[in-house]
């Protein structure tokens, strides 16, 4: 059974719908004490980093997610949920993240852009993937749907499993053992997105 971590940040219906479409029951779980009972968890999230961290902490969900990560069971962070896996973010102040993956979250540095581009990075873009079971059976030229103004920077480059290009190259998917994260929204990325979720479910 999969839990979608419900910490009052954003729209969880889409992730749940996508799991249902893949015949995988997913439970919106807001009780930190119950998290360890699940086989896998998905940490979703849209919105601001600071709000998300305080929302996780308020319920003790931060510790529950860290405990789950230690158990070795698979977990997947999506969008803001992926960014929360990192040590810190500079989004509107400095915020400490879950620290499960070494690195930080930074704003797109428009000065470094090779040409002027809009922020947020909103729309369909490519992810150039490394060999990883999360990316099994994707179309060769697959596109995924992104919405974000901040991106992660890994300190350990071996954690990077996907990169994308927007003004410059940035990390769009990570994996550190059982802990995975993806910047685009697989639940909103049509068939290739569903395939990624299916790969996660089948791990």
């Amino acid at each position: 059974m999969i839990a979608i971590v419900d910490y009052n940040m954003g729209n969880l219906a889409s992730v749940k719908n996508a799991c249902s479409k893949l015949s995988q029951e997913a439970v919106l779980e807001s009780d930190p004490a119950k998290l360890c009972k699940y086989d896998k968890i998905i940490l979703p999230g849209v919105g601001a980093y600071g709000d998300a961290v305080s929302s996780l902490k308020k319920r003790g969900m931060d510790e529950a997610v860290k405990e789950f990560a230690k158990s070795g069971k698979f977990m997947l962070g999506i969008c803001l949920g992926m960014q929360l896996l990192f040590e810190r973010s500079s989004e509107f102040g400095n915020h400490e993240g879950l620290g499960l993956i070494k690195g930080e979250v930074v704003k797109f540095s428009t000065q470094k852009f090779s040409k002027p581009l809009k922020i947020p990075h909103m729309g369909w873009n490519r992810v150039f993937t490394k060999e990883h079971s999360l990316f099994n059976k994707l179309d060769k030229n697959h596109y995924l749907y992104f919405v974000h103004s901040f991106h992660v920077e890994c300190f350990d480059l071996t954690d990077i499993i996907g990169e994308s290009e927007y003004g410059y190259q940035f990390t769009s998917a990570v994996a550190h053992g059982n802990i995975m994260g993806i910047q685009p929204h697989p639940e909103k990325s049509h068939l290739n997105g569903l395939q990624i979720l299916k790969n996660f479910i089948n791990m």
Partner: peptide
Amino acid sequence: ACEVFIPLTVGGGIRKLDDIYKLLNVG
């Protein structure tokens, strides 16, 4: 939202936060 997995936008008649909440809540 149960079968189309691409972004969905709704416009028309949205006047208050609760209107937004109700829509986001269903996908």
